[in-house]
Design a protein around this nucleic acid. Sequence first.
DNA 1: AAAATAATTGCAACCGGTTGCAAAAGACTT
DNA 2: AAGTCTTTTGCAACCGGTTGCAATTATTTT
Lengths: 333, 333
Amino acid sequence: MPKTLKDVAIRAGVSRSAVSRTFTDGASVSDKMRRRVLKAAAELGYSPNALASSLTTGRTKLIGLVSNNFHNPIFLEVFDRFTRALQEKDLRPLLVNLTDETDPASSVRMLRQYSVDGVIVASSTLPPGFSKAFRDAGMPVVHAFGRPTSSPEVHVVGIDNIESGRMAARTLIARGYGDIGFLGGPETATSTQDRLHGFLAELANCPAIRVRHSFAEAYSFEAGRREMLRLLADDPAQAYFGGDDVLSIGALSAIGERNLTVPGDIGIIGLNDMEMAAWQNINLTTIRQPIRHIVASSIELMAEMLKDPDRLPESRIFACEIVERGTLRPLKV
Amino acid sequence: MPKTLKDVAIRAGVSRSAVSRTFTDGASVSDKMRRRVLKAAAELGYSPNALASSLTTGRTKLIGLVSNNFHNPIFLEVFDRFTRALQEKDLRPLLVNLTDETDPASSVRMLRQYSVDGVIVASSTLPPGFSKAFRDAGMPVVHAFGRPTSSPEVHVVGIDNIESGRMAARTLIARGYGDIGFLGGPETATSTQDRLHGFLAELANCPAIRVRHSFAEAYSFEAGRREMLRLLADDPAQAYFGGDDVLSIGALSAIGERNLTVPGDIGIIGLNDMEMAAWQNINLTTIRQPIRHIVASSIELMAEMLKDPDRLPESRIFACEIVERGTLRPLKV
DNA sequence: AAAATAATTGCAACCGGTTGCAAAAGACTT
DNA sequence: AAGTCTTTTGCAACCGGTTGCAATTATTTT
């Protein structure tokens, strides 16, 4: 039913090439011709078929937006920002939800079938194998919220998790806590490992402070809550660095359930600064991950890649900042 | 760089049709032929170009997933479920983020350019004009979380907001509250209007109960909080039906900030049963919207539409249920 | 073993566009 | 007004597939 190039050409009494050219910018068409074609096109309600043209041009303007984080509320914001930014650049997000069962090979196949122009992997928990698989299949890749390294195999945009671990440690030290815990996300996630690493490294300078660590099973409310309940049952630390905000909020809940107060009995600092952290009935002190910048930078990098696919992979690291709210005791002066 | 049909045909020493048929199920190919082709294809790492084939078959297996709800956490779950369900059916979600500026015409154009096979509109706040615009452009449409009517113009899957308003009212009446408020979402949203309508209708049977209503500016934490702060400043009701969960949580926060207790001083019942409602430090009594079923049913309907585009538009209404938690006083016996 | 029937294969046209190239049309010189 | 240089236009081939049709091959029937 939709009108085609040919319909317009016939109606305007011109060649198909002429019509094609009026809808291709940079092509050689006289003003007279253009007007004539546009008139006919408008009368027919024609709009060019992007898929057909992709056949010859080799560009679909489709970008695979790949993620496995469909349970962490901050990713709603991430998707919001990514989709808007892509739309503004006249690109379309083809959303791919990586479940535990999906293997890299099949997602590669899928994205190749739709000849996406590039792939944005948005995940802090996905093993690097995925991004590499996409790259090996010849697609431009940007891994947002990934683990930046000094010799990246694909473009990575994210934060320095080691540094953010140090930052958390410094903050807790400055508050005068003498017994500190790291309540991490899943032990296998590289982000968890890096944060722990930085955290311990910083605390190594303070032999007087007691340090311990443990891991929740996931970056989730329930996992954080369960792990905190376990910790509370047996000699808890004075303050914890929670793996991320949602996990920390779970921990806060556990503390409340045991009728302990925050920050009176136990302090907590999270990571992400998700919207909820600012809610007055949560009011979580946390380390802000600059989502906005990470997204913007990833998009920018993707745009560059589309122009020059051979661009060398690059790591872009953004600084985090402490957001002071109400879950740590005040600074000692 | 990617291999084409022709490459495989040459390598296998057969015609291009033969290769095409091997990858089209239901086509006539001998086993011998198929094995030969598959071998060559595997050696070359070939996978068919879905876009090219869409040209002749007229099906892209692309489904537009259109929403403007990128701020309500329940929609992360909605997207999760939709994308998974689509993937299982071998369909691909093309995500469209409707911002306040986007008009129906341009989204229609966009979806037409990519010849999507169908459009799922996932939104409780989008005016019906959007879905109609898609339908008028000849695309199969399902509006999930829309407002079911008795003479739908497109397929609509959702809940009966009037009935859920009644349900909230009945619940509050049964708890013996004598002074009840409706704290709605944006006044213009049809869902708000319907819920209020049902709410008032049910309470009309109880002249002894005092009833008032007001509206928050959005379905958001901050809007709910602000409106509740306003209400608390001047003679609040004993219990409120909050427009949705996130708004209700904002209201809870406001109540806490004024050092009042829930359900001691004020009761709250929400709507949606988002994940957070079950968090122990929130523990919101609410009306559950059966997201899972709404999504599944929408997908099912879409699948039917793909088979038979002329299917008559249908409204599917799902029942809600009360989820008892801790923000209402106990039932009077 | 020949005839009848069924299954498989290749040819060629087509899907809706793009684009290199040569012919046609305009603009500019002199 | 004829000749030269640009710009515009249409032709035709191509992008990576699909599919109706006729020719070929395999299978079944008698």
